[in-house]
Design a protein around this nucleic acid. Structure first.
Length: 485
RNA sequence: GGUCCCAUCGUCUAGUGGUUAGGACACCGGCCUCUCACGUCGGGAACGGGGGUUCGAAUCCCCCUGGGAUCACCA
């Protein structure tokens, strides 16, 4: 049987990295088995679903290159376009006596829950409407429709004895006693299906063979399986992935800070790094840490998935990002950092080649594109901000003469303005004033970059160019002379 | 609280009865060096507890403890 998996996000917010990991695993499993990966949009909650969320989800997946074989823009992969199908499914269950109308109001239900809690009973629905409607009448019950004044819900008649066994591909066997399950609502009073019902119908209709999702869904699974049985359909296989937790050990959520795919894109992370990080959280292949997408697909296997929840570790993600940054060509890196520079409103005083030279001096000091752009500030803006501490430490009166001498040497350098010729200029000044390299390099660094930390001083000068270097040196010399008048 | 899931360094993990318990991130130290990085070399750091099974348990079983998820007309 050909493998068919699906990822079914609901467009009620940003695409969350914990959530997208489930999608990634479903994707990898399908690709590994040369199967089909389906993207379905669970948008039956009209209140919370939004167009923007949908767009963000689709763009996030495209950015991560998690591509789907079936799904949007095809309208049939939106639950909101399948409402007729769900009504039909509910009608059938009604007709067969496997569902019934429930006339309890949300307020009553809430009160019953509270009451049960006070009395330390389980808070589930007690089934009071289960036998209210005679069997023969059931077939005639219409699907609720508030507009038509039909204010009730349809509940699934769950079995009250026996047990439901989930043979999970990751967790192993989990046995649920059926008397623990209550009769869940499958159609709301507004006529829309609830999640557990719509999901089952979709998984059945689309021929899903393996349901891959977070283990927060494990308690839903016996309920969904019972609906499958009621429909006379064999349930799919299940694989429940452990959760991704925040540093506090709680399920990762917005309150943990940056958690959406978009957030990491804006923070200057690469999709390869995020993918690589996510795949190693809960899955492993021996001691290997770095995986290309092709390798992930080749090696992926539920047997190698861990069973326990993992804590999201931003440092490791950062390290991976650095790894992919180092691996990039200068050409690509320069191209990718551009939008980040432009976002800061900085102009690039040179062509693509110049930008590549600039990036070359910075790349091993930056772990993200954002850091790369930020470090480039002194190359791109002539109005550099002098770090007071660095200036106080290195821009002292006795260095004025060597700086003047260096400026003259650089100005009169014959031939090409290269790191090698710059170095020769430095050596002449060093010899003339009997200084060590560090004694000159640090003051120059402060004069050129504003701070005491930068790439190698020859590289900085070569990228900055003769004119801008000399201008900045002159400015520093000027500052020194004015300070000591 | 009921139900279900889980348990190896701080974190991600390897390990499927016999290992000096391995790797990675992070951390600490040496080297490199014009600063900072990069790189490189080295270091500290774990089998939650108690019972079994076995010649032998991180590995198998039970109990305890701890953590998590879930109990909606959300998904």
């Amino acid at each position: 049987m050909k493998v068919r998996t699906r990822y079914a996000p609901s467009p009620t917010g940003a695409l969350h990295i914990g959530n997208v990991r489930s999608g990634l695993f479903a994707y990898l499993f399908a690709r590994h088995h040369k199967g089909t990966f389906i993207l379905r949009i669970d948008d039956t909650d009209a209140e919370r679903s939004s167009r923007e969320s949908l767009e963000e989800i689709l763009e996030s997946l495209r950015w991560l290159s998690v591509d789907w074989d079936e799904g949007p823009p095809d309208p049939q992969y939106f639950q909101s376009n399948r409402l007729e199908r769900y009504r039909e499914g509910a009608s059938r269950l009604l007709r067969e006596g496997k569902a019934y109308p429930c006339y309890c109001s949300p307020e009553q239900l809430e009160a019953m829950r509270k009451q049960a809690e006070r009395e330390h009973r389980k808070p589930g629905y007690d089934g009071r409407c289960r036998d209210l409607t005679p069997q023969a009448e059931l077939a005639k019950i219409p699907i609720p429709n508030r507009a038509a004044g039909r204010n009730y819900t349809i509940r699934f008649r769950a079995p009250r004895s026996g047990s439901t066994v989930v043979e999970d591909l990751i967790k192993g066997r989990a046995v649920f006693e059926n008397h623990e399950l209550d009769d869940l609502i499958i159609v709301r009073s507004d006529g829309l299906p609830t999640y557990n019902f719509a999901t089952v119908l979709d998984d059945a209709d689309f021929g899903i063979t393996h349901v891959v999702r977070g283990d927060d869904h494990l308690p839903n699974t016996p309920r969904q399986m019972q609906i499958f049985y009621a429909l006379g359909i064999e349930p799919p296989a299940y694989a429940h992935l452990p959760m991704v937790m925040g540093p506090d050990g709680q399920k990762l959520s917005k309150r943990h800070g940056a958690t959406s795919v978009f957030a990491y894109r804006e923070l200057g992370y690469f999709p390869e790094a995020l993918l690589n990080y996510l795949v190693r959280l809960g899955w492993s292949h021996g001691d290997q840490e770095i995986f290309s997408k092709e390798e992930m697909i080749e090696y992926f296997d539920f047997a190698a998935c861990g069973k326990s929840a993992g804590i999201f570790n931003p440092e490791k993600l950062l390290w991976l990002n650095f790894h992919y940054l180092k691996q990039r060509s200068l050409e690509q890196l320069a191209r990718e950092v551009r939008p980040f520079i432009e976002k800061r409103g900085w102009k690039i005083p040179g062509d693509q080649k110049w930008l590549e030279k600039m990036v070359a001096t910075l790349r091993e000091r930056a772990k993200t594109l954002v850091e790369l752009a930020d470090f480039a500030s002194f190359y791109l803006n002539d109005e550099i901000r002098l770090d007071p501490k660095a200036a106080a430490k290195f821009l002292k009166p006795e260095i004025a003469e060597p700086l003047k001498s260096l400026a003259r040497e650089l100005e009169t350098l014959e031939g090409e303005f290269t790191e090698a010729s710059i170095q020769s200029a430095f050596q002449r000044v060093l010899a003339d004033f009997n200084l060590k390299l560090g004694q000159l390099a640090q003051p120059v660094r402060v004069a050129l970059t504003g701070g005491s930390v930068s790439p190698g001083i020859y590289e900085v000068i070569a990228v900055l160019g003769r004119e801008r270097t000399v201008a900045r040196l002159a400015k520093a010399i000027d500052l020194l002379s004015r300070q000591h008048q």
